[in-house]
Computed example of a mutant assay.
Amino acid sequence: MKPTLLILAAGMASRYGSMKQVDGFGPNGETIIDYSIYDAIKAGFGKVTFIIREEFVDSFKAIFEPKLAGRVETDYVFQSYDLKQFGIDKEIERAKPWGTAHAVLAARNQVNEPFCVINADDYYGYDAFEKMAKFLTTEVKDDLYSLIGYQIDRTLSDYGSVSRGVCKVDDNGNMVEINERTEVYFKEDGSVAYKDATGEYALPNDTRVSMNFWGFTPAIFKQSEQMFVDFVAANENNPKAEFFIPLAADKLIKDGTAAFKVIPTGSKWFGVTYKEDKPIVQKSISELVANGVYPEKLWD
Results as ranks from 00 to 15, higher is better:
59 S>A: 13
14 S>C: 02
5 L>G: 08
54 E>G: 07
61 K>W: 10
81 Y>L: 00
14 S>I: 11
41 I>P: 09
35 Y>Q: 09
81 Y>I: 00
24 G>C: 07
63 I>M: 10
13 A>M: 01
74 T>I: 09
36 S>M: 08
14 S>K: 13
72 V>M: 04
52 I>D: 05
26 G>N: 10
76 Y>P: 09
41 I>V: 13
67 K>I: 12
63 I>P: 01
65 E>W: 04
53 R>Y: 08
28 N>C: 09
47 K>L: 06
81 Y>T: 04
23 D>Y: 12
72 V>T: 11
32 I>H: 04
47 K>P: 07
61 K>Q: 14
67 K>E: 08
16 Y>R: 15
59 S>Y: 01
56 F>Q: 07
55 E>M: 02
29 G>A: 01
7 I>T: 11
65 E>A: 14
49 T>P: 02
60 F>Q: 11
33 I>L: 07
71 R>G: 12
22 V>Y: 05
19 M>Y: 15
73 E>Q: 12
13 A>N: 15
7 I>G: 09
33 I>C: 13
78 F>V: 11
8 L>T: 05
48 V>K: 03
51 I>L: 00
27 P>Q: 08
76 Y>R: 06
20 K>A: 11
47 K>T: 10
76 Y>G: 10
5 L>E: 07
62 A>K: 13
46 G>S: 00
74 T>C: 10
33 I>F: 08
28 N>A: 11
59 S>H: 06
19 M>R: 15
63 I>F: 11
12 M>G: 14
42 K>F: 05
79 Q>F: 01
19 M>H: 14
62 A>Y: 07
71 R>W: 10
11 G>T: 11
56 F>S: 12
13 A>F: 08
21 Q>R: 00
42 K>S: 15
72 V>L: 03
19 M>D: 15
55 E>P: 02
14 S>M: 10
52 I>E: 05
64 F>I: 04
9 A>F: 04
54 E>W: 00
5 L>M: 10
62 A>T: 14
21 Q>M: 04
73 E>D: 15
29 G>W: 04
14 S>H: 11
57 V>K: 14
5 L>N: 07
16 Y>S: 12
48 V>I: 14
74 T>D: 04
75 D>K: 00
73 E>T: 11
44 G>A: 13
44 G>R: 05
77 V>Y: 02
72 V>E: 05
70 G>A: 12
3 P>R: 08
11 G>P: 13
62 A>S: 15
79 Q>R: 01
37 I>Y: 03
15 R>P: 06
80 S>N: 12
74 T>W: 03
69 A>F: 03
12 M>L: 15
48 V>S: 06
53 R>F: 02
6 L>H: 02
24 G>H: 11
50 F>Y: 14
30 E>Q: 11
80 S>L: 01
33 I>A: 11
42 K>I: 00
51 I>N: 02
70 G>M: 07
17 G>W: 12
36 S>P: 09
8 L>N: 04
71 R>F: 10
41 I>M: 08
39 D>G: 08
30 E>P: 06
45 F>G: 08
6 L>W: 02
34 D>V: 01
42 K>H: 13
69 A>R: 11
17 G>Y: 15
56 F>V: 04
66 P>L: 00
15 R>Q: 12
21 Q>W: 06
4 T>Y: 07
77 V>R: 02
38 Y>D: 13
37 I>W: 01
58 D>P: 05
31 T>L: 01
45 F>S: 07
61 K>R: 14
34 D>H: 05
33 I>G: 09
8 L>R: 01
66 P>M: 06
64 F>K: 04
40 A>K: 00
73 E>G: 07
41 I>W: 01
